[in-house]
Design a protein around this nucleic acid. Structure first.
Lengths: 215, 215
DNA sequence: CGGGGCCGCCCCGGCTGGCGGCGGCCCGTG
DNA sequence: CACGGGCCGCCGCCAGCCGGGGCGGCCCCG
């Protein structure tokens, strides 16, 4: 059962959301709050899996509340709900650790699906927001990552596994346990990686992998 | 009516997709291709709204084809379809201009919804990919960098110098030459750094420094 | 003067990286 | 088909580097 709390200053909106979510058998609305401060207090008490927050609220707004919720001992997955998908909101929300951002015109079926997706540990954005994120993503910042990924393309399958482990800061022995091979084998792979990439030690390899987004 | 082409080297997969999509009244499959080259030729002829491409194909793969499709006079919206959501694929795909990236285990209902979303000019990613994009997004801002810098603030001046050298992939001896101190001294500083930061080896320290923008 | 923090150095056990070697798989060739 | 070469994954050995602990000198501050 997915436990959800609803946070919106308008009682009517909360009722509507509750009706939609209660129609799903695996979702249970376990509390409601009218502003951000109440939301944090409520979440601390009932420890929900998911918190649906309106952004615009009197008093503590949804973005501030999202950051506060992230500091709870057992933080809920935070989804922000708004009428307008302003870029600035989206940025602040994601920075605050939100894993969902939906528009209030989302169809009921999609809202339920989104809650399930979030509860499973994944993320869900409104399609229009996804599009703008992709544009930003494609436009900026991927240069170094792409170059790194290119260099790493010469590695074999097993070497990639080993490199990921190395890039996480594991020792050869730890990597061996994680990948089900002897430490001696891990070391051989590491040597091969260094040779193929023209590097001289594992730190350089780890950073390259890090740049490529492998860890 | 949304006009779609299917590109996959396995006829069975294409048939399955066609059956799913044909069950939607507003979607029409107007062509199929077995590899990337065929796909480009087909798209140029039938000018579909959406192209569903498998990534792994013999000959011209889906990523290469996606880039070629973007150069057509009336380019289709490109959606990539794959079994594994490797970061490297996602990066290349989005840079190639794809507006969708789905896993082959996507439920039929969601696939149809995704096609509609794409056709409307929005974007659609598999939830697991959305999540990783968000993590990267939140980290790319000064979020993680600030957290890393915070942790590094306990280091002394000389320890910072040593950490920068380590983060560049230098050995202790090299760092010693660069900083004008004995290798033994560098090693002592590295030990102190690891102790202060609660890490167990230099790779972890290097990555932390890297995240903080020190190298 | 005593104590704490920082810097520099040495010794030692364990880990890392280089080298050689083994078997299995794929593929082009005779 | 046989066979040989290349690549991959796997392993053992050895020199050298890394990380931990301990020691002394310097400066600052109480």
């Amino acid at each position: 059962m997915i436990r959800v709390i609803l946070v919106d200053d308008e009682r009517l909106v909360r009722s509507g959301l509750r009706m939609i979510l209660d129609s799903a058998e695996d979702v249970e609305v376990v509390g409601e709050a009218g502003d951000g401060a109440e939301a944090v207090e409520l979440a601390a008490r009932v420890e929900p899996d998911v918190a649906l927050l309106d952004i615009r609220m009197p008093g503590t707004d949804g973005l501030t509340a999202a950051a506060a919720l992230a500091d709870l001992p057992r933080p809920p997955k935070v989804v922000l709900l708004t009428t307008f998908d302003l870029d600035e909101y989206v940025h602040r929300a994601l920075r605050a650790g939100a894993v969902g951002f939906l528009l209030k015109d989302t169809p009921p079926r999609d809202l339920i699906a989104a809650v399930r997706t979030i509860a499973e540990g994944n993320a869900m954005l409104a399609p229009s927001i996804t599009k703008r994120m992709l544009e930003r993503f494609a436009a900026s910042g991927t240069g170094a990552a792409a170059a790194a990924a290119q260099r790493l393309s010469v590695l074999s399958e097993r070497e990639r596994d080993v490199l990921v482990a190395v890039a996480k800061g594991m020792s050869n022995a730890e990597a061996g346990r994680g990948l089900g091979m002897r430490e001696a084998t891990v070391k051989a792979h590491v040597s091969s990686i260094l040779a193929k990439l023209g590097l001289s030690n594992r730190v350089q390899a780890a950073i390259l992998a890090h740049d490529a987004g492998w860890a």
